[in-house]
Design a protein around this nucleic acid. Structure first.
Length: 419
DNA sequence: TCTGGGGTCCTAGGACCC
DNA sequence: TCTGGGGTCCTAGGACCC
């Protein structure tokens, strides 16, 4: 059996942990730049706030309905996630952290356990230790555990969100209940295509012919089908080093000047480099993109991207910033109002297996310089040391009007308890 | 005024090899 | 009229996830 554990309304729940006065009250969390809603508490969902609701459109709705609004506080959510995951790892030798708020546990070999009670125990423990409410779905395969979790959320039993799918009858009933577009791994495009051939539920999907599924979709959907049929096809995955690393942002205002965008691109490249060094890799290609605001159709639009193959593999912030700026100059066109840009690095290799080139190589001094920079930034706080071409005056600030404190990661923000 | 950010995997097709 | 057979590697684009 597998368990899928999912934190309920994770970002909203994180905010509530440190604001117990908001228990039972509606909460929404906004995206970067306070643009749109990316998380909602159950109360906010009930009031009818949709996912992705535009903050400026809903401003008065929030006020009228007493909805508490937060800017995204990823420092807090990342740390809370780490705490939850650390606990979950105690409950199985094999744990896959699937996303910031979800994990699979392998429960094969737990057949003498009462899994219903085990699920409840995990739930209680996470709640007690972190304050985060979770849902637990337990079933014979990963895809079915996803489904069991959905049932657990939808039909809580006396305020507990835990469901175990033991029997074949339960499996069939659940599959008949699950709409095709709600299957994990079947998105919008696929569900439209499936509905066209009369497949309305997950159960219908499992009745399809294998080769038809493979031919019309791919091996991924075929594996999913088998997993839904109760045949363990998807396995617990190990953490793998990333294959791409991206830093992309919308700007809080339009940028037209090359020098302004250069500064942003430099900062994005530095951020990518830091993540790259953390996983001890070097990269061989870099992509830079820029775009105008595609939501504003009345303005003249332009977007472009370019991939540079680097003359040598590197993870130096200095070198990657330089290449990123070269790339930018190749695609930048004046007289456009740019709204978003990004840097994506690709083609990773382990940093201790670099193939040296006869002609040009990464500056060996950078290795030590970067190590020192990372150490300083890790101990004294991010961005304490920057490249001079970055924004030294802190001109750029994301719009984060309603940011909560970093309760768990910043010394001055830790709450004080008086007793 | 205002619209997020970061990932993965698969496939078809092209270029190349013998 | 008619044009082999068997491979590998790479990439862009499209689907999906949170």
């Amino acid at each position: 059996m597998f368990a899928l554990i999912d934190c309920n309304n994770f970002y909203a729940s994180c905010e509530r942990v440190f604001r117990p006065d908001l228990i039972g009250k509606p909460i929404v969390v906004l995206s970067n730049n306070d643009g749109c809603v990316i998380a909602r508490s159950n109360e906010a969902k009930t009031l009818g706030v949709p996912m992705g609701a535009l903050a400026f459109e809903y401003e008065s709705f929030f006020i009228q309905n007493g909805i508490h609004v937060f800017s995204a506080n990823f420092a807090l959510y990342g740390d809370m996630s780490h705490r939850v995951m650390t606990i979950l790892q105690e409950y199985s030798p094999e744990c896959e952290i699937y996303s910031i708020d979800e994990a699979f546990l392998n429960l094969n070999g737990f057949k003498h356990y009462n899994l219903q009670e085990y699920g409840l125990e995990i739930q209680k423990r996470v709640r007690k230790s972190t304050g985060i409410p979770i849902s637990v779905g337990i079933a014979p395969t990963k895809a079915l555990a996803k489904l069991a979790n959905r049932i657990a959320k939808k039909y809580p039993i006396r305020t507990t969100n835990s469901y175990v799918m033991h029997s074949e009858e339960q499996r069939i009933k659940a599959l008949k209940w699950l709409k095709i577009e709600d299957i994990w791994g079947i998105g919008r495009k696929h569900s439209i295509k499936l509905r066209e051939v009369g497949v309305k539920t997950a159960y219908d999907f499992t009745l399809l012919n294998d080769s038809w599924v493979k031919r019309n979709f791919s091996i991924v959907e075929l594996r999913l089908k088998h997993d839904l049929m109760g045949v363990q096809t998807l396995k617990i995955e190990d953490v793998k080093p990333k294959k791409n690393i991206a830093t992309t942002r919308s700007f809080e205002r339009n940028l037209t000047e090359l020098k302004d965008i250069k500064e942003r691109i430099t900062t994005f490249a530095v951020s990518c480099s830091e993540k790259l060094r953390q996983q001890h890799s070097v990269c061989t290609s870099i992509m830079v993109f820029i775009r105008t605001n595609y939501h504003r159709e009345e303005l003249e639009q332009y977007q472009n991207n370019i991939i540079l193959r680097l003359p040598f593999p590197t993870n130096s912030s200095i070198e990657l910033a330089k290449f990123a700026n070269q790339a930018l100059e190749l695609i930048f066109k004046p007289n456009f109002a740019y709204k978003k840009a990004g840097v994506i690095i690709m083609g990773f290799k382990p940093e201790d297996e670099i193939q040296l080139s006869l002609f040009e190589n990464s500056n060996p001094k950078h290795h030590f310089l970067m190590k020192t920079m990372d150490q300083i930034n890790n101990s004294l706080g991010q961005q304490k040391i920057k490249l001079a071409s970055q924004d030294l005056k802190k001109m750029w600030k994301m719009k984060q009007a309603r940011l909560s404190p970093r309760y768990t990661t910043k010394l001055s923000d830790i709450i004080i308890v008086k007793c």
